[in-house]
């Protein structure tokens, strides 16, 4: 089973104080910690577990600058065999569709039975790339996968629907699956583990290596573009309780008592 996993390096913003930069089109990136996109972490783990069970290879692909090598090396430390980085000035400004086009051309160059992508990325949250990639490649897809089982030339997978419901789907291979968080427990990668793969080659592909024209990708190959970013308008908002922790705790007691929170 040869598996390709599409990954992305993203800033960790869940606990960070996010500030809009001077361009008004992005957030201030200095001071933020970057890591492998959370969904992709589950996707690479799932691919490596399949490889350990069935043999074959795992190749990771990422579009991005040299910084992205860090995430690719993390994937190799987890157990991926090869890494490919798509890099070219022409890729700048790519939306989900343009990204899928570039990934598709890279995937075509690598033998594969299965392609994984995260359901979405933590930063732009398109939730689009994996499914668009499958359509460009002309192969089937299943999105929001939260468990899977390989059978003869096909797979049986569970899709996560709303409200705790799942649907079970059978899909012929090769296929693209978009992987949901929680499908497994991604392994921990030690600093030693990353050091071990520090010298491993990371291949790079530019537009000319990918059977693409510069205008197919980047902003010119995209369907949407970002105009500006802004902080979400705050609604009425909460009444903030301030003061000494003990005093706040007393206020919380009064609120709980008043609102039926003490039973």
């Amino acid at each position: 089973m040869n598996i390709i996993v599409c990954v992305k390096r993203v800033p960790e913003t869940a606990d960070a104080d996010v500030v809009i930069d001077k361009s008004g089109k992005d957030i201030e990136r200095s001071g933020l910690v970057f890591d492998l996109n959370e969904w992709d972490n589950y996707a690479i783990e799932e691919a490596i577990m399949l490889k350990e069970k069935m043999g074959g290879t795992v190749t990771v692909i990422s579009m991005g600058g040299e910084d992205s090598n860090e995430s690719l090396r993390k994937c190799m430390a987890m157990g991926a065999d090869d890494a490919v980085r798509l890099t070219d000035p022409a890729f700048v400004g790519s939306d989900g569709f343009a990204t899928a086009k570039a990934l598709a051309e890279a995937v075509r160059k690598i033998p594969h039975d299965l392609v994984f992508a995260g359901v979405q990325a933590e930063d732009d949250g398109f939730g689009q790339v994996g499914v668009a990639l499958a359509e460009i490649l002309g192969i089937p897809h299943v999105s929001l996968v939260n468990s899977l089982e390989v059978q003869e030339k096909k797979m049986k997978v569970h899709r996560e629907l709303e409200g705790g419901l799942e649907e079970v789907v059978e899909v012929d291979l090769p296929a693209v699956l978009t992987i949901q968080t929680g499908i497994n427990q991604p392994r921990y990668v030690s600093i030693m583990g990353i050091r071990k793969v520090a010298k491993k080659e990371i291949k790079t592909f530019g537009v000319s290596d990918l059977n693409l024209k510069p205008e197919d990708v980047g902003l010119s190959g995209s369907y949407i573009q970002l105009e500006k970013i802004f902080l979400p308008p705050v609604g009425e908002g909460a009444q903030m309780l301030e003061g000494k922790p003990e005093d706040i705790a007393s206020k919380v007691f009064d609120i709980l008592k008043d609102k039926g929170g003490l039973t």
Binding site: V18, I27, L219, Y223, I224, Q225, F230, P232
Partner: peptide, 19 residues
Amino acid sequence: ALTRQLYGGKVNAAVSFRK
């Protein structure tokens, strides 16, 4: 004219179609 969210809802983005 579209509005989307980035970074898990920490930031909103004004987005337009290019085509």
